[in-house]
Write a protein that binds this DNA or RNA. Structure first.
Lengths: 253, 253
DNA sequence: CGAGCAATTGAACGCTGTCAACCCGAGTGG
DNA sequence: CCACTCGGGTTGACAGCGTTCAATTGCTCG
C-alpha cells in the first residue's frame, strides 16, 4: 500500500526548499516532471532502506536525517563505506543491484524517484544525467579521500580528519562558516564502523583530544573545536584543505 | 609539440581490438567521431600523467601497462587509491581539477580524448555519457570494496583479497579462467601503498602464505595460487564472490 | 668488481583490539 | 519514590600485530 506516503503533493515544495543537488536551478519543465514521480518516504533509525545485493528500485536524495551505506564481511563485521547527509543523493542508475546496504542511521526522510522513470527523464532532460554524473563523481572523490583516511594507521588522525570534514561540510551547506561547533550525527558504534576501528579506541581518542585542549566535549555527539590548527596538524592533511580562509583551494585550484 | 604522438591513425584499430569499455559495440558514427579526437600517448614507468589538483585536460583509457591513482598526505606519505589496468578509464568529465595524481606505475600506453571534445560528443551520442556514468559507477563500487578491505585489520586479509581480485580481473578480461598464475603488476612499494601498509609487512605476509602452502612464489611479481579455498578463507570474504564456478553471483545476484 | 636498489629477515617498541568492569541516564514496574 | 534493567559511553589491563629501525641478501647496471 502506498497510503502511508500520501504526502506526495508537498514533495516539490520540500525539495525546492532544500535546494537539493538534483532539483536546484533545474529548468521548470524538468522540475515539474521530477515532482510527478517523486515520493517522500520516512524511516525510523535502524530501518533498512535497501539490503546488500537488493534490486535497485529507486534513487533519491536525503531530506533530513542520516543514512549509512555499509558492507558486511563474511565473518559478520560491518564497515560503513559512506554517510549520506541531507542533500546527498543515493542509489544508482543503469545498475540492477546494489553493492551496499543502505540503512537509516537516524530517523530520516528521503525523496525518492523510481529508477526506471528517472532514467526515462534522461532522454528529455540531459541536464539531469549530467547532474547524476556529477553526483557520483563527488561520491567517488569522497570515497578516495576516505581510502586515504582509512589507510592511515592512527585512530587520532582519522578522527581529526572526520571532524574537519564534518565542519567543512556544515560550512559548505550553510554557505558560511558556521562556527566551531560540530555535531556528530551518529552513535559511537557507527562512528567506529566508519573509521574502521572500535568504540573503545574512538572513546580514547576523543578523551585524549579533550584533555589536550584541542576539542571540548559538550555531549557525546557534540564537540567544540577549540584549537583548529592543532586539529589540522593531527589530521596530517594539507592545512589549506581545511582552512576556511581559502576553502575553494581544494576544489577549484 | 604533438609530433611524438603521430601514431594517431592507428588509434581506432587499437581501441577496437582492445574492446575497451568506451569503444566496444558503439554505433559506427560515434566510433568514427571518437577516433577523430583520439590520441595515443606513451609514458615511461614513474612519469606523471596528471598531478594532484592539476587541470583535467583529457580523459582516456589504458591500452597497456598500469597507472596508479595516488594521494599524498601532508607528511609525505603516499597512498594509492586505485590501480588502472588495461581497458580501465581514467579522468573526469564535468570537473575542473583532479583530486588524485595519476602516474605510470609501469611503462604504459593510453588512449586519450580531449575532455572538452569528449563532452561535446555527449550531446550527439548519449550512449557515450551512459557508458561514462557506468564506468564511474564501477569505479565507485571498486573504491567501496577497497574501503572495506582497508578497514580490515590484518595485512594477510588485504593481500589475500588483492590476489583474488587480480585473479578475477584477469579471468574477466580474458573471458575465461586463466589458471592459477597471478601477476602483480607493481613493485612492493606500490603494493604496500595500495594495501595501506609497509613493504616489510607485505613481505612477511607473502612469505608466510608461501610457507603455509597457499601460494607459490615464482618471482617477486608472480605467484601461483596453490590452495584457492584457503586463500578465500584468509580473505574473509564471501566464498561465492571469488568462486569462478559462480562468477556472476556478485554482480547480478 | 663495486654501487645501488628491491626484497627479505630480525629485533624491539607502541598502538590498538580484546575482554572486562564501571558509570550514567532513560525507561519500567513495584 | 526507589530498585531494577538496559543500552551507550568510558576506563583499565593486557596481549598481539604491525610499524620502525637495522642488517642482510640478491640482483642489475655501470
Amino acid at each position: 500500500m502506498e497510503g502511508l506516503h500520501s504526502v506526495t503533493s508537498i514533495v516539490p515544495a520540500k525539495c525546492a526548499a532544500l535546494d537539493c543537488a538534483i532539483c536546484a536551478d533545474l529548468e521548470p519543465a524538468a522540475k515539474l516532471e521530477l515532482s510527478r514521480i517523486a515520493r517522500v518516504r520516512t524511516y525510523r533509525a535502524g530501518e533498512t532502506i535497501l539490503a546488500e545485493s537488493d534490486e535497485i528500485g529507486f534513487v533519491g536524495n536525503v531530506v533530513s536525517g542520516v543514512l549509512r551505506l555499509q558492507k558486511t564481511l563474511h565473518d559478520g563485521r560491518q564497515q560503513i563505506v559512506g554517510l549520506m547527509l541531507p542533500s546527498d543523493m543515493f542509489g544508482r542508475v543503469f545498475a540492477q543491484t546494489s553493492h551496499v546496504a543502505i540503512e537509516a542511521a537516524t530517523d530520516a526522510t528521503v525523496c525518492c524517484y523510481s529508477r526506471g522513470s528517472f532514467e526515462q527523464l534522461f532522454l528529455r532532460f540531459p541536464e539531469l544525467e549530467h547532474r547524476m554524473l556529477a553526483a557520483i563523481s563527488r561520491e567517488l572523490d569522497a570515497a578516495q579521500d576516505w581510502m586515504l583516511l582509512l589507510a592511515t594507521q592512527s585512530v587520532s588522525e582519522r578522527l581529526a580528519t572526520f571532524l574537519l570534514i564534518l565542519r567543512r561540510k556544515k560550512a559548505a551547506t550553510a554557505g558560511f562558516d558556521a562556527g566551531p561547533l560540530v555535531e556528530v550525527p551518529v552513535s559511537r558504534r557507527d562512528l567506529a564502523a566508519y573509521l574502521g576501528t572500535t568504540v573503545e579506541s574512538i572513546s580514547r581518542a576523543v578523551q585524549q583530544m579533550a584533555r589536550a585542549g584541542i576539542i571540548r566535549i559538550i555531549d557525546p555527539q557534540r564537540f567544540e573545536i577549540v584549537d583548529r590548527q592543532r586539529l589540522i596538524a593531527l589530521s596530517n592533511h594539507d592545512p589549506q584543505e581545511f582552512d576556511p580562509a581559502a576553502p575553494r583551494t581544494r576544489r577549484f585550484g
